[in-house]
Simulated assay, not measured.
Amino acid sequence: MATITELKCALKETLESRGVLGQLKARIRAEVFSALDDQSQARPPLSHENLLINELIREYLEFNKYRYTASVLTAESGQPEVPLDRQFMSNELNVVEDPSTRSVPLLYGLLSHFLNSGPGEKGGKLFLRGAPLAKDSIARSMGEVGRGGIPEPEKAGMSTAEPFVLQGGYR
């Protein structure tokens, strides 16, 4: 007769081999977080930059079927429940997609671009310029609203120069 320890081990191995154990753990974490989440405490306002970053991450998580992780991100960050429109995201990020990129998350295209751009392209490295993230800048940015509650890119510290073109060839 098998011992309790042997039964636990067999059950764990079976659940792992079926790919269920990770999902169960993620679901339990999401449920625990949801039960413990204090809805009475107001969240700080979601900046334009954080809204876009969170949406890129959510799109990636949902594409990879990390649904429970995505639900925790949405709940914890205060991200709107309804995902932002893909075309809206492309416009906000000043990205133009070719047809092969539309089937994968925008984050894959951005990463692929930077991994595949050689040192000779536009001076080698990309110079990152941060948007003003001081509290008063974020508050000011969130107050200057356009396009259905989203600040205009130039007011949020984003460039409206020539679009960034995403091309296929990944995943």
Rank of each mutant, 00 (worst) to 15 (best):
K65P: 02
Y66G: 02
R67G: 08
R67A: 06
R67T: 15
T69P: 03
S71T: 02
V72M: 07
V72Q: 01
L73G: 01
A75H: 14
A75V: 07
E76K: 10
E76Q: 10
S77N: 07
P80T: 08
P80F: 04
E81Q: 10
E81K: 14
V82I: 13
V82T: 14
V82Q: 15
D85M: 14
R86H: 14
Q87W: 03
Q87Y: 10
M89D: 00
N91M: 13
N91E: 15
E92F: 03
N94H: 14
D98I: 07
P99G: 12
S100W: 03
T101A: 13
T101R: 09
V104N: 02
P105E: 04
L106P: 00
Y108A: 05
G109K: 06
L111A: 15
L115H: 04
G118N: 09
P119V: 11
G120F: 11
K122T: 09
K122A: 13
G124T: 12
G124A: 05
L128E: 13
L128H: 12
L128G: 05
A131C: 11
A131N: 04
P132C: 14
L133M: 11
A134Q: 10
D136H: 11
D136T: 05
S137F: 04
I138V: 11
A139M: 02
R140C: 01
G143C: 01
E144V: 10
E144Q: 08
E144P: 00
G146V: 10
G146S: 11
G146N: 06
E152G: 03
E152D: 05
E152T: 07
P153W: 07
E154Q: 15
K155V: 01
A156I: 00
G157L: 01
G157T: 01
S159D: 12
A161K: 08
A161T: 13
E162N: 09
F164R: 08
V165R: 12
V165D: 11
